[in-house]
Amino acid sequence: MESSSNPYQAPSNGPSPSGSPTPLSTKQVLFGFTGRISRRTFWTGSLAIGLGFIVFAGILSAATGGSIDPETGNPTGMSSVAALIIGLLYIPMTWISLALQIKRWHDRGKPGWWCLINFIPIIGGLWSFIEVGCLRGTVGPNEYGEDPI
């Protein structure tokens, strides 16, 4: 029995046969650069990734002999292996942060290239925070997909 769908075509985030948008999987939300996500999904993903990284780095640092200097509050004594592992974790963390932010720009009806505004000192970060983190996305479908309920 033949299927009418093309097995080589990427799955779309368009409406399902029932008429409601198909939600993105966790993998698509964290690692893909297409589609749209809501503010709630953006903040949940950002906080989960950030807090998870901080907790993991703290545990790893403490397990390898690191401590906090009581006078300055700065970490001291982290092993080079722990520093290397933490440094390597920045790569997927940066990827996930970009994926989340680009999908929020898409929800606002703008291309993902708008995430480059973060490189403008002070104003860029503030603009991005307001647009991506605070303002509601476009209502209804736009060129990047259906409204992410």
Rank of each mutant, 00 (worst) to 15 (best):
L84S: 12
G14D: 15
S20F: 12
G65E: 04
T94Y: 11
F33G: 01
Q9P: 01
P92N: 08
S25T: 15
W43E: 03
S46P: 01
L24A: 13
S16D: 14
R36S: 02
A10T: 09
P23L: 03
G14C: 04
T64W: 01
N13E: 04
L88K: 09
G19E: 10
Y8E: 14
L89K: 02
S12G: 10
T41P: 01
P21I: 03
P7V: 05
T44F: 10
M93E: 11
M93S: 15
E71D: 15
E71S: 10
T26F: 12
G50Q: 13
Q101D: 06
G14W: 03
S16G: 15
T41H: 01
G50C: 08
T26K: 04
I91K: 10
L60R: 02
I91N: 07
S80F: 06
T26N: 09
A48Q: 09
T76A: 14
I96D: 02
V29T: 09
T76F: 09
G14L: 11
S67W: 13
N6H: 13
S80V: 10
P17Y: 06
S20R: 14
T64S: 15
L24Y: 00
L84Y: 10
P75V: 12
I85D: 01
A83D: 10
P70I: 08
Y90C: 11
L24W: 00
G65P: 03
S61D: 04
L30A: 05
L51P: 02
L98Y: 06
